[in-house]
Amino acid sequence: MRAEPVGAEAGTRPLRPAARPRSRGREFLQALPWIGPALALIVGVVFFPAGVMFYNSTRDISASGVDRGSAGLSNFAEVFAFPYFWPILGRTIVWVVVVVVVTVVLSLALAQLLDKAFPGRRIVRLAVIVPWASSVVMTTMVVYYGLEPYFGIINTFLVDLGLIQDPEGYGWTRNAGTAFAWSIAVAIFVSLPFTSYTILAGLATVPSEVLEAAKMDGAGPVRTYFGVVLPQLRAAIAVAVLINIINVFNSLPILRVMTGSIPGYDADTVMTMIFKYIQNQHRLDVASALSVVAFVIVILIVAAYLRVVKPMREV
C-alpha cells in the first residue's frame, strides 16, 4: 500500500488546484496497479456477495435452489408480515444493547485492573485472551453441555448445592427465556477480551502528567476516573462499541447452539431467523430479503450511534 499516499496527498492537500480535475484520473490510473489487488478483493468478497444478496431478495427461488424469476418486493412483504417479526426485532435489540453495554462496563473495569502493575499481570492478561482465542462454537458447546439436564456439570453443581430440586437438573437450554439469558452471558464472555484490550490500549495513551495534575488539584480516584480518564478513552470506547454492535448483531453461533432445539420463534433474533429461513424452510429468497433488512438495521444503528454520541469528535 506504499503507493496510496500519492493519491491521498493529491486528494487532501490542494497543492496544484488548477491541475487537479484533469490529473486526478491519471493519478488514479497510476495507482491502480498497486491498489488493484486490494480493490479486486474488496469487490469480490464484499460488494459482489452483497450485490447478489440484494438481487436474490427480489427473486423467486424454489426450495431446491432454482431461480423462477422476479418476485418484486413480495419477499420483503413476507418478512414484515411474519407474525413473529416484530418480537424478533425487539429481541435482537435487547440482545445487542444488553451484550454491548454489559461488555463495555465490565471491560472498563477489567482494563483498569490490567493496567495496574501487579505480580503475575502477564499471566492474567494472557488468561483474558483465552475466550477470544478459542472457537466461539466450542466455548458455547462447553456451556451448553454444562447446562444439559442429567449429565451437565453446571446443572449437577446446582443440584448438589440444593438450588435445584429435580435430580436431573433444570432444562436451561430447553426454555426460551433461560436459553436466551445464558446466550447473552456467553456472548459477553467472548466479547470481553477484544473490548478489554481496546480499552487497555486507550488507557496507555492517557498521559501520566494529566493524572498527576488531577492529583495535585485534589481530585479523588473516582473524580479522576470520571473527569479525566474516561473522557480520554472516548475514541477507544467508540471503536469497541461500534465493532461490538456489528459483531453482536451478526452473531449466529451462540444463539444457534444454545436455542437451536427450542420450538417456535420465542428465542430468535434476526440472525437466527435468517438461518431458519435457509436451513429449515429453504427459502433462500426470503432469507436474502431478511438479510437486506438486517443490513439496513445495522447501518441505521451505527449511523444513529455516530450521530447521537459523536464518538469520533476530538476530545
Partner: peptide
C-alpha cells in the same frame, strides 16, 4: 443464477450478514 454462470468466481465463504444468504 444462470446469468452468473461461467464467471468463474471462487466464492470465499464468509459468515457475515452480508454473505449469509448469498450462494456459492
Amino acid at each position: 443464477m444462470k446469468t452468473l454462470r461461467g464467471i468463474g468466481v471462487v466464492a470465499l465463504a464468509a459468515t457475515t450478514a452480508l454473505t449469509l444468504a448469498s450462494c456459492g
